[in-house]
Nucleic acid binder design. Structure first.
Lengths: 248, 248
DNA sequence: AAAAGGTCAATTGTCAGACAACATAATCGA
DNA sequence: TCGATTATGTTGTCTGACAATTGACCTTTT
């Protein structure tokens, strides 16, 4: 009888902890076979059936499980690919760590400048407001593999970065900060040939092939807090995504 | 007092109809403002609060709404970007039609051959089984913009294609067919320089920059039914994706 | 013997009502 | 005037019950 409640107090709502616990259960179930019945599972996790069902709906929405009345709840194939995708918003360091890739962050280059008209509109800034460009190179074994440029209003930039006392991901910092709470990133993916600047930073030829991502980072209230371009040398990172038919 | 129950019998479970009804409600709510309270909304939709909450969890999982105890349920910004992303599995024609782009399908090139070892393993085929390569060019205003190559076992290929009586998307046909029921596509995105073959088909120079997607199409049972490569000239299609922080 | 139909147990679907936990606004007292 | 308290409305959680569906087993009929 394993209960959801952990020793230390977890202040999150029960259904969220239940979701985590359920994820662990699903992970241990062979794809194609069935979960325990709802009453049983609810007893196992120490929650009511109603709460358990709400948690299950989340996974059903993701297509991880399929429920059928009178039969049971099946874990679908493949339940693991979710974790390899980029639909999760996380920093490159976190991603690299998960796939066992050792990366080194280059020195941050920080430049302050006046906001452009577009930025004033998108970020909802006042005229003459100032924004900061933060750029850096990410390498593995001394070979550059990515070049990142973040643009964001001055007041959103964490202090650690401002004081150059930090070598890491802007995204990680922003996510960890509670205010403002980062929620989503609308990312656009395209292929480009390297410009002179990017080529210089990455040590490649001008015109070489790069994968480019332009991302708009927003809070859950919809406020824009960061705009970034990321350039990747093809072949190192594998960006995958699970696409689903709409009807389901 | 609008009820979920429609005049004609909808055999789907109530919570699914509730999900649809709830989607309509959310659509009419200004982003940033709140939904009616759960008891009220449940009465409005003619379902119990438990059923309503299960439906709400789906949208919460998608980040469309945010619930806070003691306060209410807010519709987030921006609720529309979902529809622009590639996390939905649909054909290029469907996508193009949605964004108002007129495209022309080129002639299909169909070649049958023996399956490779990798394909025998992935598709779970017998030794010596035969697979079909289907390739085509997609253009807009006479200018090629994409080159697609599908590889799939012979018996999965719809008859219309086999008989050359079809000019359109393999994916559309497969989705429309009930057996086997296409569910997900694991797509990997990268940038490549055009090979000789692709360059010839697209009328570009060898080495030009292309966006490349490799996709594995599967049924919900996990069976592989199609493997495809898609090459895109940058700039025409805008592939976007909504990434979310994991914790929420 | 084979096919058809009926019974039964197990599972998910749905409901009603109640109370707890939490947040905010209104009220009251010093 | 300001702080504490109360009131009210919201989401969170639980309990117990019954309905709808499925599949296995058994019985009956052909």
């Amino acid at each position: 009888m394993k209960r959801v409640m952990s020793g230390r107090e977890d202040s999150r709502p029960l259904y969220q902890r239940t979701t985590d616990a359920l994820a662990a259960v699903i992970k241990d179930v062979e794809p194609g076979s069935y979960l325990p019945s709802e009453p049983k599972l609810a007893r196992q996790l120490g929650v009511s059936r109603a709460t358990l069902r709400e948690a299950m709906r989340v996974f059903e929405g993701q297509g991880v499980i399929v429920r059928k009345q009178g039969v049971g709840t099946m874990v679908t194939h493949p339940p693991h690919v979710i974790e390899t995708g980029i639909e999760k918003l996380e920093s490159l360091e976190t991603l690299a760590g998960r796939i066992g890739l050792q990366v080194e962050m280059g020195e941050l280059e920080i430049e302050e400048r006046e906001a452009t008209d577009l930025e004033i509109e998108r970020f909802a800034l006042e005229n003459g407001a100032r924004v900061v460009d933060v750029s850096r190179v990410i390498s593995t074994e001394e070979r550059p593999i990515a070049y990142l440029v973040d643009s964001l209003p001055e007041h959103y930039l964490p202090e650690q970065v401002q004081q150059r006392r930090f070598k890491g991901s802007i995204l990680d910092l922003l996510v960890r900060k509670q205010k403002p709470s980062v929620n989503t990133s609308l990312t656009e993916i395209t292929a480009v040939s390297a410009s002179a600047e990017v080529a210089r930073e990455l040590g490649i030829q001008r015109g070489d092939v790069l994968l480019c991502m332009e991302a708009w980072l927003r809070t859950r209230e919809g406020d824009l807090i960061d705009h970034s371009f990321s350039y990747f040398l093809p072949g190192t990172f594998r960006f995958s995504i699970v696409r689903r038919v709409q009807g389901v």
